[in-house]
Design a protein around this nucleic acid. Structure first.
Length: 338
DNA sequence: AAGAAGGAGGTCA
DNA sequence: TGACCTCCTTCTT
């Protein structure tokens, strides 16, 4: 057994996926007994599991993003890998932003240093539960944003298209959506990984792995584990008002959508942010990105900032949004800030 | 070039 | 009918 030291980026795991297939992994902590007994198995490019755990349906997995937490410089955790495994270590300082390296942080997990600190004294099971909780939160956010049900089995073909578009966007995949048209959620869930690869030889497995996460999440929600829900913080759960805007069956308004993005600065702060929250002044930092998100939300692939900004300007007459007193490019103001 | 402003016609629930 | 979407022209930064 070799080992990967703290500070290693999980890119190495992804890029050397074949090196780990059918191999066992083990997690060890300094001054602790090796964790996992028989080791941990790599399930796919996004998760590993403890083979000693045998649930009735799809097994809860520890997502590889978990290692991001474990591999902090001081955590003491070490990932043991088979000797001779093909690994290309990458240090944290070399780490790309999640958006540039979507496969690592497949669900956009953003974990604070405080969380890293807390993890030191948690058992791996707790870490697993926490990571699963984070994934569930991110899926919940995506559901609100896309206005689709959380369980892929409930998706219409339109929902599937939205989800595929979203995943394309998230992972910067070349257009794979065309290969998955006219499929319902049930069709999608019934497909084996081979079928995904057949439809999209290059990216089918990524899409399959991502869908698997959603399926697992739906299964966990169904079981509504109190341990998992414990980690779904109330601050992150969408308020009833927010849920109303996207789950009432009413089409979401652009101004509501913009507010929803602004409510998630940790996720969308790079594309839209408050300049003065009290006055409702915000700036669209990345116009193309915001337009793309809006296009996905409304199922309008041809959406761009020119069109989005035209819609924003329609709000001038309605008294919903206006330009601030000191007009700046890409800066707008809600007339009635909350 | 990118963004701002607004007219005009079209689509869809 | 409202809320965009799309395309357009003109002006500003």
């Amino acid at each position: 057994m070799g080992s990967l030291e703290p500070g290693l980026n999980t890119t190495a795991l992804h890029s050397s996926r074949t090196g780990f297939q059918e191999s066992s992994l083990a997690l060890e902590k300094q001054d602790h007994e090796p964790k996992g007994g028989a080791g941990w198995e790599l399930v796919d490019r996004t998760s590993i599991r403890d083979p000693t755990h045998t649930p009735e349906r799809s097994p809860p997995s520890v997502y590889l993003s978990c290692f991001d937490m474990l591999f902090t410089e001081d955590s003491g955790w070490t990932l043991k890998v088979p000797e001779g495994a093909h690994v290309t270590p990458m240090r944290l300082e070399q780490r790309k932003e999640p958006e540039q390296c979507p496969l690592i942080d497949s669900q956009g997990l953003c974990l604070s240093p405080e969380m890293d600190y807390q993890i030191e004294d948690r058992s791996l099971e707790q870490v697993q539960t926490m990571v699963v909780g984070e994934v569930l939160k991110d899926i919940e956010t995506a559901c609100k944003l896309l206005n689709i049900p959380p369980d892929p089995m409930d998706w219409t073909s339109g929902n599937v298209q939205k989800w595929v578009l979203w995943t394309e966007h998230l992972y910067r995949l070349p257009q794979v959506g065309k290969s998955f048209q006219e499929l319902s959620g049930k069709d999608l869930c019934a497909m084996m990984e081979e079928e995904f690869r057949h439809r999209s030889p290059l990216w089918g497995d990524v899409l399959y792995a991502h869908l698997d996460i959603w399926k697992s999440a739906a299964w966990m929600k169904e079981r509504s584990s109190p341990e998992v829900s414990k980690f779904i913080g109330s601050d992150e759960v969408w308020s009833a008002t927010e849920a109303d805007s996207s789950c009432s069956g009413q089409p979401i308004h652009l101004w509501q959508f913009l507010k929803e993005l602004l409510l998630k600065p940790h996720k969308y702060g790079r594309c839209i942010s408050w300049l003065n929250k009290e006055k409702g002044i915000f700036k669209i930092e990345d116009s193309a990105h915001v337009a793309r998100l809006w296009g996905i939300r409304k199922n309008r692939p041809a959406m761009n900032y020119d069109k989005l900004s035209r819609s924003i300007r329609q709000y001038y007459k309605k008294g919903i949004i206006r330009k601030p007193d000191v007009s700046q490019r890409l800066v707008y103001q809600f007339v009635h800030p909350v």
